[in-house]
Design a protein around this nucleic acid. Structure first.
Lengths: 129, 129
DNA sequence: CGTCCCGCTTACGTTAACGTCAAGGGCACT
DNA sequence: AGTGCCCTTGACGTTAACGTAAGCGGGACG
């Protein structure tokens, strides 16, 4: 199985992060690049995980939160207790994210209102000139 | 004008934050409670602002980001240059928030998929028992 | 009057998520 | 052999957003 790998530098340019960040994520067990001697080689899995990590961050999730989510995506089938706990954890996150979306919608609506108000003030200000 | 005010303790229970947080926000000029002697009295305006602050935080905005947004909500009508810059800033935020919403939607969809997958595994695991 | 309790200020401590050296190995030219 | 460049591992520094503790003032209450 010849998994296509990437060097740390390639990862950095591809995902716009620093080497430090990738090493940090590895230390936190969010990524598990393989080693060629001492060098890191990032696999397809690492890339998929990094995508999820960066997305999670944009929603204000902590790396620890994200690590738990990642664990869920990677369970191939452990025991039932584990699986069920994982499921509950995911449900909770889902609820949380849906609430967040609802709030985001109202916030967007409010911001739009404000913007149209300032836009109006701008046109008035210009017609007055 | 008899503005209805609240003590710091009342604010804390109402918004579920600590006194330290409120003082911190005041120091950062996010809130401007009036003083009765040395005590802080939080006005309706402070409450409105705090609501926006806490919402912003849930979206991962920094306090500095939020301060700029708050400034926008409070402009009653300065000069045109200011107003126009404010407008642009708001537009940028709006774009940002809409992008965030789009991503949130896909993340929610993905999570749902995962959940139905684990749910399926659970029922299988149980029927096997 | 003593003592709570609340609030205030000042200031140092803490955590997450990296940034930034310092010191060194390995490989590719030249 | 020397010069770069990339990578590595420590290890200490930094910023945001508070937590926490120390020490003081003021009113309420027994």
């Amino acid at each position: 199985m010849i998994t296509e790998t990437m060097t740390i530098r390639e990862m950095c340019t591809a995902f716009d992060v620093t080497p430090r960040t990738l090493r940090f994520y590895e230390a936190k067990e969010l990524l598990q690049p393989i080693r060629q001697g001492t060098r890191r080689l990032f696999t397809k899995t690492d890339r998929a995980r990094l995508t999820l990590i960066l997305r999670g961050k944009r929603f204000g999730f902590s790396l620890e939160d994200i690590r738990q989510l990642l664990d869920m995506y990677n369970r191939d089938g452990s025991n039932e207790a584990q699986l069920s706990r994982t499921h509950e954890l995911g449900q909770a996150r889902l609820t949380q994210m849906q609430a967040q979306r609802a709030e985001l919608d109202t916030a967007i609506a409010e911001l739009k209102d404000q913007l149209s108000a300032t836009a109006k003030m701008l046109t008035q200000s210009r017609s007055a000139a």
